[in-house]
């Protein structure tokens, strides 16, 4: 090829080391670097990992059997001998129950979000990209689903599938699906109008390739954020379902069910309600903050505003 006017490397003033790093940094490394550079997100991630680990290793960490009743030691305050966080109305150790309940609550959140993602994203991706009557149909259907109160819908699903936490969470996942669908569709609609998608079309790329390579990566960040927000919501809905007895079954505990029983003894033992409440709050908060951090780390590059 011929000699062409060179613009000179814009980064000629950049050091060789940064140059090489920039040149060879893979997308996943870049994501990790940018996520770790955010203090709040990193701290939230660490907290979340601790929560998950404590749930996984609950049998090892729990000082006592979470379901063993001890009617001589009911409603003990925190700091009592052998019971660090006290006992509940049946004399069960609150700390042990809290650790085991974490397993239930976390699994519930993951189940609900996964069901929502599977049911919501794929149809919306096609609907948003193809448009026409597909789009119309999907949107009317999601509108109908969104009009349902979440708890009522979950109760309906439990009525059909039978009680049990997994069934309840499938119900919650169905409630989440339209939210994922809406986010996906609006993101697809905006990405579809981008010039680079038109460029891909004019290059003769196939539709699946365009969706996979040029549309999907740009959905990642809104979806991750939605997923984290809904994961928090799933735990709260689970708490609500357990509260009315449709979620987890006795004597098993979830944070939600602990909250509901503690509520009855709020006058006698006010700290009892604090622990599951704190657990839910800390987990939901760190999931959300981590979600924010992931969004920023995945986010499109900020355009240079100086001009």
């Amino acid at each position: 090829m011929t000699v062409v006017p060179s613009e000179g490397a814009a980064g000629s003033t950049t050091g060789e080391a940064t140059f090489l790093r920039k040149r060879y940094e893979s997308p996943s490394r870049r994501f990790a670097r940018r996520l770790l550079s955010q203090k709040v997100a990193t701290a939230s991630g660490v907290i979340l990992i601790l929560v998950v680990l404590s749930a996984i290793f609950a049998p090892l960490l729990a000082p006592l059997d979470p379901n063993k009743t001890d009617l001589r030691n009911t409603l003990l305050p925190p700091g009592s001998a052998d019971f660090l966080l006290g006992t509940d109305y049946l004399g069960r150790d609150v700390l042990s129950r809290l650790l085991f309940a974490g397993r239930v609550s976390l699994v519930a959140a993951v189940q609900a979000v996964s069901v929502g993602l599977i049911l919501g994203v794929a149809p919306a991706l096609v609907a948003g990209y193809v448009g026409r009557w597909w789009d119309w149909l999907l949107m009317r259907f999601t509108d109908a689903l969104l009009a349902f109160p979440p708890l009522i819908l979950a109760i309906t699903v439990i009525g059909i599938l039978g009680t049990g936490l997994t069934n309840a969470m499938i119900g919650v996942g169905i409630i989440f699906a339209p939210r994922f669908a809406r986010i996906t569709r609006s993101a697809v609609l905006s990405v579809r109008e981008e010039t680079f998608v038109e460029a891909a079309k004019s290059m003769g790329l196939s539709q699946p390739r365009i969706i996979w390579r040029h549309v999907l990566p740009h959905l990642l960040s809104p979806l991750v954020v939605t997923a984290t927000v809904l994961a928090g919501m799933a735990m709260i809905i689970e708490a609500g379902l357990s509260f009315i007895g449709l979620g987890v079954q006795v004597p098993q505990a979830s944070w939600g069910s602990m909250l509901s029983t503690a509520y009855r003894f709020i006058r006698v033992s006010p700290t009892l309600i604090l622990w599951p409440g704190l657990a839910i709050m800390i987990t939901v908060l760190s999931v959300n903050l981590l979600g924010d951090g992931i969004r920023d780390a995945l986010g499109r590059e900020v355009r240079d505003m100086s001009s």
Binding site: G8, A10, S12
Partner: peptide
């Protein structure tokens, strides 16, 4: 006609005349 090269990026200006490299 054009001026070769591009302007320095913010924070990467040299200590002398900024236009000097071009």
């Amino acid at each position: 006609w054009w001026i070769d090269g591009s302007p320095p990026l913010p924070g990467q200006v040299s200590s002398g005349c900024r236009f000097s490299p071009r």
